[in-house]
């Protein structure tokens, strides 16, 4: 029996990482990897090219969640369509809500789009806690990095100082990136810093860059554009001389392309998330800002 066991043990991979981390979004995974460095192994549950509202609840994700020491979620119900049953079946008490390994990134950031009054489904797919797309502002990313470091420090105290140093350095560089990019956009005349968006997902981006969102192609969040509404948006585009229709890559592009053609402008297709693991969060943010600026 012992003779049999030894080769089997040799085949088992050695635990080289102190923490196993799972993030729902690739941008969160990229932040977590930079905070954790070589001490953590990070996996993203979704691809940067897919709409995180509508991922499939694949059972393979249960396996990933089952092994995680820390789970980083975006929060504000962005993942409500697929994450809850996976988390329930993960059989992992470390990452359930309320446990130290459950990190809700939205808890760290300044929120926009929080409904002021009572909400109703007739208003569309409104997120009751606020607009969940805060990762498009690097200042939010910086706050998330600090929150992630706190959680890593709790889960792996021997490396706590490393996590905190990594997070502080990342937060400082993201804040610096935010300031320099804002300054670049400020040089563009205000009348050109106007865009039309597809979904209300660029709220934090326009807030950060001092860009004005003059209209939304979806008449209400999650409700597809109707011909009448698009005609109204076209009037707004013409009267305000808007040149850019902006949207993330995972929303339908036909309406945006047609409108951009009619307005003699451009459709700016923004990357959906950091292309983890090859791309850092900062590079992703630079690419987003670049894609937007190119059209203005």
């Amino acid at each position: 029996m012992k003779k049999l066991l030894l080769p089997v043990l040799l085949l088992l991979p050695l635990p080289v990482h102190a923490l196993t981390v799972v993030a729902t979004l690739p941008s969160l995974a990229a932040i977590a990897k930079q905070v954790g460095g070589a001490q953590v192994q990070v996996e993203s549950l979704t691809s940067p090219h897919q709409d995180p509202h509508y991922a499939d609840a694949k059972p393979s994700l249960i396996v990933s969640l089952n092994r995680a020491d820390v789970l980083v979620v975006n929060g504000l119900d962005l993942e409500v369509g697929w994450l809850p049953p996976l988390l329930l079946q993960s059989r992992n008490a470390r990452i359930q809500k309320g446990a130290a390994g459950y990190v809700d990134a939205s808890q760290a950031v300044r929120l926009l789009g929080v409904p002021k009054g009572p909400i109703d489904r007739a208003m569309g797919d409104v997120h009751p806690g606020g607009n969940p797309h805060f990762l498009l502002d690097p200042r939010s990313g910086a706050r998330v990095a600090l929150l992630v470091a706190k959680s890593f420090a709790k889960a792996d105290p021997p490396n706590a100082a490393t996590y905190q140093q990594n997070a502080s350095a990342l937060a400082a560089s993201l804040d610096a990136l935010a300031a320099t990019t804002t300054a670049q956009f400020a040089q563009i005349p205000a009348e050109r810093r106007r865009i039309v968006v597809y979904h209300d997902s660029l709220t934090y981006l326009v807030d950060w860059l001092g860009v004005k969102q003059v209209a939304t192609l979806e008449p209400r969040p999650g409700i597809a554009p109707s011909p009448q509404h698009v005609a109204e948006v076209l009037q707004v585009i013409k009267s305000q001389n808007v040149k850019v229709i902006a949207q993330e890559e995972f929303y339908p592009k036909n309406t945006g392309k047609t409108l951009a053609g009619l307005a003699h402008g451009a459709l700016a297709v923004l990357p959906g998330g950091a292309d983890f693991p090859t791309e850092t969060y900062a590079v992703h943010i630079k690419n987003v800002a670049q894609a937007l600026r190119a059209g203005l």
Binding site: S47, H49, D51, D56, E249, F250, Y251, P252
Partner: peptide, 11 residues
């Protein structure tokens, strides 16, 4: 058996 191109904007 399910085929869903993960990056298809029309889902």
């Amino acid at each position: 058996l399910r085929w869903r191109p993960v990056d298809d904007a029309d889902r």
